[in-house]
Each structure stands twice: as structure tokens, then as C-alpha cells.
Write a protein that binds this DNA or RNA. Structure first.
Length: 577
RNA sequence: CGGGGUGUAGCUCAGCUUGGUAGAGCGCGUCGUUCGGGACGACGAGGUCGCAGGUUCAAAUCCUGUCACCCCGACCA
């Protein structure tokens, strides 16, 4: 049965909602797809929920085709499960916590690694039961510090999360690849253009991971992509190609101390000393299990803690308060290592260069000019205490790490999917082992794979809209055909219903605008909600035994007159079905 | 969490400085005229002005508190 506009709820808005900033949020509100209930909380209205349903169906089909089995786990979970893997601490404030009437502590699940591992540990005891991949489509909860951009960053959202279980690393590779490929098919089918980038795995933990990013300016994530097209990574992960460095440069002058009061930032110091940030050394003190480490990057660069950790071989934390007692935080220079034996030092390649340097003077309210690596540091410490490495965040213009001569360019993206190789983090923490062929107990190797369903819908709108409204990809449009009768009565009405019946018999879903509105209102609403095909039924056309056929993607182009008996075929053609 | 801003009708907003019993446009209802890209006219419905205290003869307006929402920022010395 076709949907009659009058029998559903499509509250289109003429004016832009005041609180919506990005196009997808604005259009989802205006086209009557969603309604905000509170910060980061949205109701999906009929149109939005239909688009979501189609998205979910695509995801489900591809997951099933990839050999995964669907389950449904509780959203509410005992906090103890999180404590087992210490994620109650690692996830921190982002975890929604609550207490029940008995005083039991619980959490609203932001992801389900612990729950699925508990489940699997209970039922899977033999390698013969592996490999397995289970997934669910569930509402997730994250107490975001700042929900924004509509459903793109909300506190409650629908996610598909899958978990794979293998006995061997090779098995994990196969499972990972299967998900990776399934994700490509899913996003292709959803009509998205996307980039696959190397990514950090974050608090989920794990060893390798890729993110599926829809590139658009309103995206919250920053990615870097080689202009040669064969490397792309999240900025948190992105490696930088080989760079030359040296500590052997001659001094640019005598070390000169400058009084720099009230200069709390690189910018302020630079301004005060009339030195560009790229001539300043940014010197940070991190604590590690192996003692404190000085990290040095150029003033206009940022430390990447993941890279620093890799360079040190130990987890690093920046602990200002602890350090403030021992070091002149804010005015530290690399030569502090010469005076303090406990400090090791890691320098980014771009900070180990032959040029004029200014840095902290290791004295409150003072900096120095003409800092020289050899004279002020290398000549005073054992070589083993200093190391040069890639420890900063990559930036636009950096060389691609592939070494193909490519240059990294910065883009913004919406993360719609993420695949991780988890390894045995969860199985170890929760004692999930199986017996192998040799009757030895082995930790199960896991992978996890997420897709933000609401983000697919929003991203599709983000890259598919014009000044008049949404332009849906056919696969996830709420309806494939939108019939607009000039008047919903008599012969016109009959034609609408008969066309709708034929279209639906041919596998299309149909919305009929049966409202007693003026045509202009209906046309504008049709453009706004953006179904791929609009059929206009009017007396003029009917006199020629025809209706007007128009694709939303064609914008203001003139409609095409199509004979009644050709309509179904023309629609199928246009929808590519 | 820090900073800024906003809460008045379903939506977008005015009124607040200088207290006097609440307005516009859109939307909604009835009637009429219209009727192929957001029609026009008439009449009408709709708001305890976020909430709680306080000041005052009188509070949307002033004061205090509180809640909600939005924006910017948030280890980068």
C-alpha cells in the first residue's frame, strides 16, 4: 500500500530551525525526519525512520552475507563487567552510569565487547566452534561532553556492532578482511562516497584498525591523504615520511636569556620575543614507567602521544601538577636534560634542524635565544638518553610515509564505520579461552566492527543536498517515488492510486501527497524531503495520457512527459532496479 | 569542565534598558475568492513569558537561585 501524506506525520518546516548548524541536521529537522527531545536525544519520525530502516536492512543483508549471525544484547549492563577490563575507568566520563533501587551500579552500554565476551566465554569451549562472528543492531549510550550536529554526535544512537572470534592471527586477518569487504559493499550500496583510513583504536584497545570516512567539510574528524592517492590516515595515527635532521649545526649565537613575563603559550612567547613559532621549541615533560621524558617538537607542531609512546616504548602521560613541583613548567627547554640526569629526551625530526632556535630557559618567566643542540645538550649528556623520532601530529603538506613522493593533504570526514583488530585484550581480561587441537588452552583472538546507522543517514544528506532540500541516494530514500497530484480528486486520484499500485508491484515504495494544498506547497515539500523520483499528476499531462517524471537529482531541470504505460519502466530505469 | 549566549504561541523572533495584566510573521481552524513552484481577504483558536524565591500597589521586564538548550574552547607549557 502506498503511504498517503495525510496518514503519516511529516512535519516539514518552512523556516530553518535556530539550533541547527550543519546541513544534515538542518535538513533532517526541516524535512521532518527527526525531532530533538533533549541535548543529543532525537526521535526518528516516520520519514527518518524509513530511511534508517532501509539502511539497517542493507547492513543486515551484508552482515548475514558475510557470515555473521545477529543477536541482541541488553543496553543496560552491570558495571562489574566494565570493571573487569578497566574500561569503567578508561571510558571515564563518557560512560552513562546509574544505580538501581537495590543500590547496584550499572551502565548503559557504549559498546558491547565485555558483554559479548562474557557470552562467548560461557558457551564456546572448543576451537571447533570457531571462527564465529556475531553482531547486533542496538541503541548505544555515550555521555558525550558535547553532543552536536544532530544525530552525528548524539548521546543515544543506533549502531551495528559485530565481534569476530578466531583461534589464530591468520583467522583474525580473514575475519577482518571479510568485514572490511562487507563494509565497502554496505557503504557502496548506501550511495556514499568514502575514504578508508588507518586509525587509532582508542579506548576499545587493539592493534590495527581502519575507519570508513565520508569526506565533507562539516566532518568532525581530520584525515590526511596522500595526493598520490595510496595512503590515508586519521590525524591521530598518520605517520610522516622520512625527514632529514641534524644535531651538528653550528651555534647561531651566544645563548641569550630573555625575560618573558606572563607568556603562557607558544603564541604569546613568540609575539613577545618576536620569534615565529616555527623557530621555537615546544618542550613537554611526560611521565612514563621508565621515568620522565622530555618531548620536543617545533612550536607550530603538536605532539602525537601515540607516536611518542611508540618512540619511548612506554605509555606516556602528561602530568602537569606532578611535574610543576619539580620543573619550571611553561619555561622548560631541552637543555634541562643536561642538568637533570633522570630525564631522557625524544626530539621530533623537525625540531632537530640547523636553524635559529628559541626555547624555554628552565627558569620561570624566562626563555632563551640561540639554543644549539650540540653545544647545549649533546655535549653534556650520554647519547643513549636522546633519540630522534617522528613524534608529532602530521599536517597538511607533510611527506607521505609511503615514500612515493606524495604530499599529505588535510580533509575533514564523518566516521561512518570502524573496524578493529582487538587481539586478546578482552578474552584475556575475561578468561575467554578454548582448547586447541593439542588440548592446550588458548585465548580467543577478537575483532570488532562498528557502523553508525544514524551517521550513514546524516552523511548521505551531508553529501546529497541542494538549496531546496535533500537529494537521497535511491537505496536509503524514505520512498523511491513521490507522487504529487495537482489535485487529489476524481480521475487524478484514481491515476495516483493505480500508478502507486503498479509501482509497488514492481518493488518500489510510494508516497502520495494527498493534501489539499496548492501545488507550489507540494512541490517545495517534495524537493525538501528529496525522494529520488517525483511524478506529477495533472490534468494537462493526463489529457495526453501522460504524467510528469522528474528526478530529484536533476534539480531545476524541466520534467519529462511519460506515457502512463511507460511510467513503471521509466522509474525502474531511473532507480537502476 | 571553562568562556559566551539564549529561554516569550507548533516554528522564527520582537517586547526587557526606562515595571502597568503579552505582540508580529509563518503555521493552525472556519468562511469566501483562488488553484501547476511556499495565494488573498475576513473572522478565530492558541502563551501560568523555562522554573522557584525575592523586591514592588504592580514583574516577561528589576534582584537571587536553579534548570534547560545552543555556540566556542578544553592536556598542546
Amino acid at each position: 500500500m502506498p503511504t498517503l501524506w495525510s496518514q503519516t506525520l511529516i512535519p516539514t518546516l518552512r523556516q530553518d530551525p535556530a539550533d541547527a548548524e550543519v546541513p544534515s541536521h538542518r535538513l533532517m529537522l526541516r524535512a521532518g525526519l527527526i525531532r530533538q527531545l533533549g541535548s543529543g536525544l532525537y526521535t526518528y519520525l516516520p520519514l527518518g525512520w524509513r530511511a534508517m530502516h532501509k539502511t539497517i536492512e542493507i547492513v543486515r543483508e551484508e552482515m548475514n552475507a558475510a557470515g555473521a549471525a545477529e543477536v541482541l544484547m541488553p543496553a543496560l549492563e552491570p558495571i562489574e563487567l566494565f570493571a573487569d577490563t578497566k574500561r569503567d575507568v578508561e571510558y571515564g566520563e563518557n560512560l552513562f552510569r546509574l544505580t538501581d533501587r537495590h543500590g547496584r551500579h550499572a551502565a548503559l552500554a557504549p559498546t558491547h565487547e565485555e558483554i559479548i565476551t562474557e557470552l562467548m566465554a560461557a558457551y564456546v569451549e572448543s576451537y571447533r566452534q570457531l571462527p564465529l562472528n556475531l553482531y547486533q543492531i542496538q541503541t548505544k549510550y555515550r555521555d558525550e561532553f558535547r553532543p552536536r550536529f544532530g544525530v552525528l554526535r548524539s548521546r543515544e544512537f543506533i549502531m551495528k556492532d559485530a565481534y569476530s572470534f578466531d583461534l589464530t592471527v591468520e583467522g583474525l586477518d580473514t575475519s577482518y578482511r571479510a568485514m572490511y569487504d562487507a563494509y565497502c559493499r554496505i557503504f557502496d550500496r548506501c550511495g556514499l562516497t568514502y575514504e578508508i583510513v588507518e586509525a587509532e583504536s582508542g579506548p576499545i584497545g587493539g592493534s590495527a584498525s581502519h575507519e570508513f570516512m565520508v569526506l565533507c567539510n562539516t566532518g568532525e574528524d581530520t584525515i590526511l591523504k596522500s595526493d598520490k592517492g595510496n595512503y590515508a590516515a586519521n590525524i591521530d595515527k598518520c605517520a610522516i615520511g622520512p625527514r632529514k635532521w641534524t644535531f651538528d649545526a653550528p651555534p647561531t649565537g651566544d645563548l641569550e636569556k630573555v625575560h618573558t613575563p606572563d607568556c603562557a603559550s607558544i603564541e604569546a612567547v613568540g609575539k613577545f620575543m618576536k620569534v615565529k613559532p616555527k623557530h621555537l621549541l615546544k618542550t613537554l615533560i611526560y611521565s612514563t614507567d621508565n621515568g620522565p621524558v622530555i618531548a620536543v617538537v617545533r612550536g607550530d607542531h603538536d605532539v602525537n602521544e601515540g607516536k611518542l609512546k611508540a618512540a619511548c616504548g612506554f605509555a606516556v602521560t602528561l602530568d602537569d601538577e606532578a611535574c610543576a613541583n619539580r620543573y619550571p613548567i611553561g619555561f622548560v627547554g631541552p637543555h634541562l636534560a643536561a642538568a637533570r640526569d633522570e630525564l631522557n629526551i625524544v626530539v621530533d625530526c623537525d625540531a632537530a634542524q640547523d636553524q635559529f632556535w628559541a626555547s624555554g630557559a628552565n627558569e620561570i618567566d624566562h626563555h632563551v635565544k640561540h639554543f644549539n643542540w650540540k653545544r647545549d645538550v649533546l655535549d653534556h649528556i650520554d647519547e643513549s638518553r636522546i633519540k630522534v623520532a617522528d613524534i608529532r601530529k602530521a599536517a597538511d603538506g607533510d611527506p607521505s610515509p609511503i615514500g612515493d613522493g606524495g604530499v599529505l593533504r588535510e580533509h575533514r570526514g564523518i566516521e561512518v564505520g570502524h573496524v578493529f583488530k582487538l587481539g586478546t585484550k578482552y578474552s584475556d581480561a575475561m578468561g575467554f579461552t578454548v582448547l586447541d587441537e593439542d588440548q592446550k588452552r588458548r585465548s580467543v583472538i577478537m575483532g570488532c566492527y562498528g557502523i553508525g546507522l544514524g551517521r550513514i543517514v546524516a552523511a548521505a544528506i551531508e553529501i546529497g543536498h541542494d538549496a531546496d532540500g535533500i537529494i537521497w541516494p535511491a537505496s536509503i530514500a524514505p520512498y523511491s517515488v513521490h507522487i504529487v497530484p495537482i489535485k487529489y480528486e476524481g480521475e487524478l486520484c484514481k491515476t495516483c492510486l493505480s500508478l502507486a499500485e503498479q509501482l509497488e508491484a514492481a518493488g518500489m515504495d510510494v508516497l502520495i501527497d494527498d493534501r489539499p494544498e496548492r501545488p507550489g506547497v507540494k512541490f517545495n515539500d517534495a524537493d525538501l524531503i528529496g525522494c529520488p523520483i517525483r511524478l506529477t499528476i495533472g490534468e494537462k499531462g493526463l489529457a495526453q495520457n501522460s504524467v510528469e517524471f522528474k528526478r530529484r537529482a536533476d534539480g531545476k531541470a524541466k520534467a519529462e512527459l511519460v506515457k502512463l504505460d511507460q511510467v513503471v519502466r521509466r522509474c525502474q530505469e531511473a532507480l537502476d532496479i
